[in-house]
C-alpha cells in the first residue's frame, strides 16, 4: 500500500494497493497524523485501491470519528466496484460521505 498527498485547500490523500490487517494500521497513522497536523478536512481518493478487508473499514471509521472530533470531516472519492461492494456490505454509505470523483468530493466541502 502507498499513499500520495496532494495539498490544496482540502488535501487529497490518494491510496493505492491493498488495505489489509497489515497495512490498515499504517493507513490509520497516516490519516490521523494528517488530521491533527492542521487538516481536519480530508479527502481519501480510493480509485487505486485494489483490495480492502474489514481492517480497511476500521481505518475508515476511525478516521471519520477522528476528523469529526476536531470539527472536520473525512470523505471518500472514487472507490472501485470491488471496494464499493465491501463498503455497501457493511452499510458504510451511512457512515462516510462517498463521492464518484475527487472533484465532487472537493465541491462537497465548498472548495
Amino acid at each position: 500500500m502507498e499513499t500520495t498527498i496532494t495539498p490544496g485547500k482540502i488535501d487529497v490523500i490518494a491510496v493505492s494497493g491493498a488495505i489489509d490487517a497489515l497495512t490498515a494500521a499504517e493507513l490509520i497513522a497516516i490519516f490521523h497524523k494528517h488530521i491533527h497536523d492542521g487538516h481536519p478536512d480530508v479527502i481519501a481518493d480510493f480509485s487505486q485501491v485494489e483490495f480492502m478487508s474489514s481492517a480497511g473499514l476500521r481505518a475508515i471509521l476511525a478516521s471519520v470519528k477522528e476528523a469529526r472530533s476536531v470539527g472536520g470531516d473525512f470523505r471518500m472519492a472514487n472507490p472501485s466496484a470491488g471496494i464499493d461492494k465491501v463498503l455497501k456490505m457493511a452499510g458504510f454509505h451511512n457512515i462516510v460521505k462517498i463521492y464518484p470523483s475527487v472533484q465532487e468530493a472537493l465541491a462537497s466541502f465548498g472548495s
Binding site: S53, S54, A55, L57, R58, L61, A62, V64, K65, R68, V86, M89, A90, G91, N94, I95, V96
Partner: peptide, 15 residues
C-alpha cells in the same frame, strides 16, 4: 447505523 453508533471491529466474520 451512523459513525457514532458503530463500534470498531466485528465485521470480518460477517464478510
Amino acid at each position: 447505523a451512523t459513525a457514532e453508533e458503530r463500534e470498531i471491529g466485528g465485521l470480518g466474520l460477517s464478510f
